[in-house]
């Protein structure tokens, strides 16, 4: 009951207008807003077992981007599904209303769900849970650039926490192209004025890519450079994820 009056009135946010400003990186000595080098990722923080009610869960924090992923399953498929030798993967990504700087702005990111599904389905051994479904639900608590890569990495950690059999952990990193420079792990301001982006989700130990997404115009040498940057970063990220899982396992043994 929000005061008197029937329908909720129209409101606007008093923040200063965030129009797409002229990209400041045209200057030669442009620095990134948070002081990182062009090829430096944000410090990553992972924690498994964030949600008790789920079979497996993980919380990831990359700078200001915070994501929680819960995995439920394997559990019974809906009756409408016909018998299937392989298991099913069901994903859903949603954002909180306060995830974006202006309330309610990014709630229609429906493509994240489909992209998460595609990134994970190559890595999960679906034959290990026939007739059942594994549900992966992600909630973005705060969105501050490079959301989908964080969601994918966090989801694969949650799947590992739930004990779902996978070929390898999936690590994911994205690279933005700002005029001539390649910038890894972009934040929201950089994403807003980017000329193109490249996102890779890969399984580092097997050196296989589960998903590659490119937007914008890229020349061949640029794509190669971008891919190499991403793959190196993914390998380092996978090491951090493994460390997190090992710590969680040794904590639970004590």
């Amino acid at each position: 009951m929000a005061g008197k009056g029937g329908t909720t009135p129209a409101t606007y946010s008093p923040s200063p207008a965030t129009a797409k400003k002229k990209p400041p990186h045209l200057k030669e000595d442009w620095l990134r807003p948070d002081g990182r080098g062009f090829h430096q990722c944000r410090p990553a923080f992972f924690r498994t077992g964030a949600v008790n009610a789920a079979s497996g869960s993980a919380y990831a924090e990359f700078g200001n981007t915070k994501v929680i992923v819960s995995v439920f399953g394997p559990r019974e498929s809906k009756k409408a599904m016909l018998y299937n030798d392989t298991g099913r993967l069901n994903c859903n990504v949603s954002l909180t209303t306060f995830a974006t700087p202006v309330r309610g702005q990014g709630l229609d990111h429906k493509e994240y769900t489909a992209m998460l599904h595609k990134a994970l389905e190559g890595a999960i051994i679906v034959e290990s849970f026939p007739k059942t479904t594994v549900d992966v639900f992600a909630l973005v608590l705060e969105s501050s650039g490079s959301d989908l890569p964080v969601i994918i990495s966090c989801a694969s950690l949650a799947l590992a926490d739930a004990g779902i059999m996978m070929y390898d952990l999936v690590a994911s990193v994205s690279v933005s192209c700002l005029s001539k420079n390649l910038v890894i792990d972009p934040i929201l301001e950089e994403e807003n004025c980017q000329d193109g982006s490249l996102m890779i989700a890969c399984m580092p130990s097997r050196y296989e890519i589960t998903q590659l997404t490119v937007t914008g115009e890229w020349s061949t040498p640029k794509i190669n450079e971008g891919m190499q940057l991403c793959l190196d970063a993914c390998a380092k990220l996978a090491k951090i994820m493994r460390l997190c899982l090992k710590e969680a396992a040794s904590d639970s043994q004590e």
Binding site: G3, A54, T96, F137, L139
Partner: peptide, 12 residues
């Protein structure tokens, strides 16, 4: 005015 909303997202 205060608008209060309670959500239970699928993760919970």
């Amino acid at each position: 005015c205060i608008a209060i909303d309670f959500h239970m997202p699928p993760i919970c």
